[in-house]
């Protein structure tokens, strides 16, 4: 922990609980940011009821991260966990900054 420091025992226990499971956390449900391909559904390359994209529950640009965020799975996208941790560095908001998600050349 770099930004939050445990002071009392209960807090240390919470911290330890996380550290203890560091190596397997990536595939666990307690993972802070929800992940895995099956528990979270992306909007997908789909259209809304009016044939457009304005009413989709998530912006379509969100899909550009599919298989990147917290992922190590070899896919057509760079993986964040092993090879390209900074790929989305310049893309704070997918809708506005998606152009910064660039190609990579392994």
């Amino acid at each position: 922990m770099k930004h939050v420091r445990a002071l009392n025992r209960k807090a240390r226990r919470a911290e330890r609980g996380i550290d203890d499971h560091d190596d397997v956390m990536a595939m666990q449900e307690q993972q802070p940011l929800p992940l895995s391909c099956t528990t979270v559904f992306d909007p997908g390359w789909e259209i809304d009821a009016l044939g457009g994209m304005g009413l989709l529950c998530q912006p379509m640009e969100r899909d550009l991260y599919a298989c990147y965020n917290e992922c190590w799975w070899p896919a057509q996208l760079p993986d964040q966990m092993v090879n390209y941790p900074d790929w989305s560095e310049k893309c704070a908001s997918a809708v506005k900054d998606w152009r910064h998600l660039d190609l990579v050349f392994p």
């Binding site: 922990m1 930004h3 939050v4 996380i18 802070p32 940011l33 900074d86 560095e89």
Partner: peptide
């Protein structure tokens, strides 16, 4: 993304993301 947008003075999002992750994993967020 809203949190990141509101945080000024962090040129990279790596630090704020790290802090958010800690806060989430400890159940604070």
């Amino acid at each position: 993304s809203d949190i990141l947008r509101h945080l000024n003075g962090h040129r990279s999002s790596a630090e704020p993301m790290g802090a958010i992750r800690e806060l989430v994993s400890l159940g604070i967020l």
